[in-house]
Design a protein around this nucleic acid. Structure first.
Lengths: 218, 218
DNA sequence: TTATTTTATTAGGCATACCTAACATTTTTA
DNA sequence: TAAAAATGTTAGGTATGCCTAATAAAATAA
């Protein structure tokens, strides 16, 4: 049994790894959790003692099998609850993250599976992230950053990297959601911003940062 | 904003009051929370400082208006989540209490109301307890203990006082649920146990303790 | 390579929410 | 009413999970 805090560390470590971070350091974790590296070092000791992670200065933090299973179950719960909040309670995709941060810690063996069944076994959460299956399998999706698309090509939004309300609200304003078709009209070399077509009619210019947080499928 | 622990104290104080306890003492709270009176005294100080309760040695603990509102909102969330778990996820009524103990602390202004709407504004939770409305109003139900029914009378189960799994599982085994019709066939003076008819056919003998935990409507 | 900057770690503190043990105050019962 | 029992309170302690400040170690730049 883990505390909320332990679960959050495991989840963050899992996410940093999924994001492709080569070496997961105390500083990286502290930044992701918005806390202090000294606190992270304390927790690294605790989670190591519990055999949920392994830590070597040279290699950084790695989840053990046990730690990874817990992390996946938390991510699964998080994404299932997000789907519930959007599908069943009518929340917007920019409103559900914080609530799911709380719901993901609710402990009960069958709960995730019952919720999964109730929702009809959804594959993706409202932000396009794959929902791990009961057995821990997580779909690998072939995603590209909008920033890496070639000029002239058309692609479809499959997920967002940043799930913070400001970004999601901006997307909503631009009428961009999961499934929206985008065309890369022009890349501006000066600051790497780009002109994109949204759907069939609209056209707008978005920043490099924007393009690095939108995941698309060609 | 309150911690989990503070919310649990407020809820317990509210429940003890609803149960008709005249004077809510540190010891009574400690028993209900399964902790130590010394811990309760600590928390009484904290909640008093926050103006959520008032405490006088002679009168015991009373919720302030503010404390009562918080307590009601927690009870509302608890009962709505219980209804959700039974109605939507198919849990048995003996399985939902512990999960709801966790879910009741999820914080988000609109959540209870959205859940309420999704469930079709249920009036009672799976144990027959009234679900407080969004404005804090709580239905007063006219309930009698089975123990107080007169010999020969027929009544209908409206709620359970004890919501612990052992009691609920026993009821399930006897095929007694909310709405079941019971007939008091005979009271045994020796130990106050009683012979009851369940529905139209079955007949069984139940203890005084049993009869003091089943709420009925004549 | 040395100096500078960044990162990791340790030491010591703080708030929360429990605990036990000792003591004080009520309430019961004899 | 006095003794016994139950209840309330205080003092001091623990574990969790954060913090800051100081120091050590490593990476980067000059």
């Amino acid at each position: 049994m883990q505390t909320f805090s332990e679960e959050n560390y495991l989840k963050i470590i899992y996410n940093l790894d999924k994001q492709g971070l080569k070496k997961i350091t105390p500083t990286a974790i502290a930044e992701a959790l918005n806390n202090n590296p000294a606190s992270v070092v304390d927790m690294i000791k605790k989670l190591s003692d519990k055999k949920l992670i392994q830590y070597e200065k040279t290699k950084g933090v790695k989840l053990t099998e046990k730690g990874k299973n817990i992390a996946i179950s938390i991510v699964r719960k998080h994404r299932l609850w997000e789907a519930f909040l959007v599908e069943k309670l009518g929340y917007g995709w920019d409103q559900v993250h914080e609530i799911a941060e709380q719901l993901e810690h609710v402990q009960q063996a069958e709960l995730a599976d019952r919720l999964d069944k109730f929702l009809g076994f959804p594959q993706y959460d409202p932000h396009g992230d794959p929902i791990p299956k009961a057995n821990g399998e997580t779909a690998v999706t072939y995603k590209t950053l909008l920033a890496e698309i070639t000029e002239g090509k058309t692609c479809q939004v499959v997920a967002v990297k940043d799930t913070s309300p400001p970004f999601l609200q901006y997307l909503k304003k631009l009428d961009i959601g999961i499934g929206t078709k985008l065309t890369l009209i022009e890349k501006i070399p000066f600051d790497n911003s780009m002109v994109i077509g949204i759907g069939k009619s609209a056209k707008t210019t978005v920043s490099r940062i924007f393009a690095e947080n939108l995941l698309v499928h060609e």
